[in-house]
Design a protein around this nucleic acid. Structure first.
Lengths: 339, 339
DNA sequence: TTGTATGCGTTATCAG
DNA sequence: CTGATAACGCATACAA
């Protein structure tokens, strides 16, 4: 009677073996995919396990075959529509391939992204998926050196890890500009944020350049973080001007919703008659009747599928950094004049 | 030179010890809180660890002191504003006490909640926090028997686990009714969902009873899941009637947003002049200018604090199930006539 | 303070 | 098919 720990603790294979009258190995084999056990002992073990409430210890299992089955998801703004949607898409798929998601919330400060990367190493995660935030290059390197997949989403920095997933910001921004032009808009503003994220500045910059190619100046407003309130505030500032804009490209739907509300509430403007607005991401709220936001949809499900495929493929490529770009499709709703 | 695994794998304490010229124990002690190491060796170890990219294996550590530092968060609708907000609040605090959140996404089907509970056991989680879904009582029991904290949020079922966190639905629903009555409304509808969650039916039922106490009949609409679209559809059906309601209590803000949009878009109704609406949860969108929803706020941060306190307190109470009820505070905005 | 030895719960290997 | 045994990476009681 070695392992009789009288309740209040997890049950071990040892205890199951004793109850079933078999060896630990038999118990182990019963719960190991594709091991050979006779149906008789298998049932005895299963029954004993059931009555004792035994569950295989993945920590110990991971100790042996260097695969914990854990994938770390690192994100800063979990409560955000876009991020939480992505989180949902990825975690759901992870379950399907018998992996489990470890959520690391890097609440703001930059130091904590590094801390998050270290957590991922501590838990011997198979992969690290960075949804937001800027991880230190050195730590990324050790993650890769340790055999992890490191996947960065919408983070096409100059210095990056090996697997990058990116959305075609410049194509979308260019298309946004032409949508607005075809609608007859000429005083176009860009509503952005102070975040300085690669995708944010990428969209901003691409739009500006598309405008410049037609000889058009564009004013850009950055009034705060990438949030609803910043969009609202941007409307407040931008639309109070004497040369009030007749269109806005918002680098994020959240900003766009705020901007729309600001334009309507503070200035009573009619959309799209007096003002055209284009967003980015196609979050759920963009489709709500109060907004009917014309925007660009990120193919979140496809991106998630791609990530899972990478993970399922096994060992990460030892080779050079990868960049996979996903197309972004326009979703026409009611904030831009048709034609 | 035992542990020279040439790259592509995680570094072990063994390798660090060899490089630093000390024993494995010295390495272990260096990374163990409150162990005694001389400053000299400590630095040598730290340096070696740094250059090798060593990180303590929490899996192995958890094997020894039955505490993996993992807390499982089980949720069904991660992408939902309320859930993701809760997720954010909890995971953020978990980091602060050196725990890490494992996110288990029970995507819909009931079986997967059981699967989630088993995962929690597999990873020897300290605690299991169920944000949504109905876990089988038997599994809850083994979790508790294994020494886990099991915390159920807004799930005051008859059969429950040991630690329940609940919001005062009946007080809020009662108050909602009186808000609407004081606003002069008499034909009041309840907008609910087909989900059949305890909190949903609790609010529904409490509101109905408050009305019944004043001899008022209430019609309840359940047009689908607890989502925006269901609220919209409810408006479509409810407001097309000859005895069109002049008020609605929506058991969720998401439903309320949909209902408001439906009322305005499909019927051009003026809120709050022709129609008063009350929501529940106070999600971010409730505060957006397009909605200005009068609703009831769940004290998410306090609830999260409470959970953390429970975890930090150590061993779960062996005693009877606990129920902690949190108050819900009304947030007056613009969808109910004042006075 | 330091090193040695032991054990944590598993699985892989090997002999039967 | 089965059981004994050796890892896996780490923390700790113990001896030095």
């Amino acid at each position: 009677m070695t392992g009789a720990k009288r309740g209040r603790s997890f049950v071990s294979a040892q205890q199951v073996a004793e109850l079933a009258g078999v060896s630990r190995s038999a118990v182990s084999r019963t719960f190991t995919e594709g091991a050979s056990v006779s149906e008789a002992t298998r049932e005895r073990v299963l029954e004993a396990a059931q009555s004792l409430g035994y569950h295989v210890n993945h920590l110990a299992r991971g100790l042996i075959n260097e695969s914990s089955g854990i994938v770390c998801l690192i994100a800063g703004d979990v409560a955000t529509p876009y991020q939480s949607r992505m989180l949902d898409a990825i975690s759901r798929r992870l379950q399907a391939i018998n992996q489990v998601a470890m959520l690391i919330n890097t609440s703001g400060d930059g130091e904590s992204v590094a801390k998050a990367l270290r957590q991922t190493l501590n838990y011997r995660a198979q992969a690290t998926i960075v949804l937001s935030g800027a991880p230190p290059a050195a730590l990324i390197e050790t993650c890769v050196a340790s055999g992890q997949h490191v996947i960065l989403i919408n983070r096409d920095d100059p210095v990056t890890g090996p697997e990058n997933i990116v959305v075609d910001n410049v194509a979308a921004a260019g298309e946004a500009f032409h949508m607005l032009r075809r609608a007859g808009c000429s005083r176009i503003a860009v509503v952005s944020s102070l975040a300085g994220t690669p995708s944010i500045v990428g969209r901003e910059e691409a739009f500006r350049q598309a405008a410049a190619a037609e000889g058009l100046e564009v004013t850009v407003a950055r009034t705060g973080p990438t949030a609803y309130a910043s969009g609202y505030e941007a409307a407040r500032q931008l639309l109070a001007r004497s040369d009030r804009p007749d269109a806005a490209f918002c680098v994020t739907d959240l900003l766009a919703c705020g901007f729309l509300d600001g334009a309507r509430t503070e200035f009573g403007m009619a959309v799209p008659d007096e003002l055209c607005v284009v967003g980015f991401d196609d979050i759920e709220q963009a489709g709500w009747a109060s907004y009917g936001l014309t925007t660009f949809r990120q193919p979140i499900d496809q991106m998630a599928d791609h990530i899972i495929a990478k993970l399922a493929a096994g060992e990460p490529g030892v080779s050079a950094p990868t960049i996979t770009t996903f197309p972004v499709t326009p979703v026409w709703r009611r904030t831009v004049r048709p034609k």
